[in-house]
Amino acid sequence: MSAVEIIALAASFSLLSGWRLYFTLLVTGLAMHFGLIALPEKLAMLDVLANPWVMVVATLGFIAELFADKIAWIDSIWDGLHTAIRPLGGALLALAIVDPGQAEWQVITFLLGGGAALLSHGVKASTRAVVNTSPEPFSNVAVSAGEDVAVAGVAGLALAFPMAAMVIAVAMVIASIICLAALRRVLRRMFGAATERQKNGGA
């Protein structure tokens, strides 16, 4: 991979960790284990991501997240607990993939990776909180399943075509923000209409 492709791969995985941290950690560990991602020599300590025990823990976290994310309000509690964990995971993923060379670039890479994960986590958590206000339970499962498919697809694409994956990951963030705004408008109208009916009924 070229330097630009490696940066694109790191950016994609950092953004994806804001949606599915444990899955992204597992994919990164497996990719490092099988040599699909070459670990920078200056950051060899991060080969811990390819450690079998770490991958087992990541697998267990992925399974727990897979189910917790599909239960209304449990998903928001889960998101709240991971507000600090996901950005840290995204920052470590960026460090594990990119060889910054100098200490100042290590700090910049760490901050950018954490910032990308925090951005996608914030959009995800906000969107799910809005979806949870819906009176029916199926929208929550549908949104979660859509995230599962999208994250898995982009992660696989990132290993083969990093630049394309980065564009799609950024587009996912933008699309999520647009959907969040639309959901808020729809729910505001729904609750406004319900409140108006209650007032008219009370009169």
Rank of each mutant, 00 (worst) to 15 (best):
N140H: 12
V48Q: 02
I168H: 02
L95W: 08
V141W: 11
S176G: 15
V151I: 07
G89E: 08
P40N: 14
S2P: 11
I6H: 11
R20F: 09
T59A: 04
G101I: 04
G201S: 13
L88T: 11
R20A: 04
L92Y: 07
M163G: 04
L60V: 15
A175V: 11
A96N: 03
T195N: 15
L180S: 07
I7R: 10
E5I: 00
R185T: 11
A117R: 05
R189Q: 12
F23V: 05
D148L: 09
A145R: 07
V54C: 04
G153Y: 06
L66Q: 05
F13K: 00
I177T: 07
H121R: 00
L49E: 01
M163V: 09
E104K: 03
R184Q: 14
A142Q: 10
K199L: 14
L95H: 06
I178A: 11
E147K: 02
A164Y: 13
K199C: 02
L187I: 08
A84L: 15
A158D: 09
A129T: 10
T24A: 01
A164V: 15
L9M: 12
I178D: 03
H121E: 05
G89Q: 09
L26M: 10
G115F: 09
I168R: 03
K42I: 01
A182Q: 03
D79V: 06
G115V: 07
E196R: 13
P87F: 12
P52S: 01
L43K: 01
G29R: 09
G201P: 07
I37Q: 10
V131S: 02
I174T: 09
W73M: 13
D79R: 10
I177L: 12
G192Y: 12
A3L: 06
G89W: 04
P162K: 02
M1T: 04
W19T: 00
L81C: 05
L111I: 15
V170C: 08
A64D: 07
L95M: 10
I71M: 03
A58K: 07
I168P: 02
T28M: 09
F23I: 01
T83F: 14
I77R: 10
T83W: 11
H82S: 06
A10H: 05
A96Q: 08
A169P: 12
S126W: 15
D47R: 08
A44N: 04
E5Q: 04
W105E: 07
P137R: 08
I108P: 00
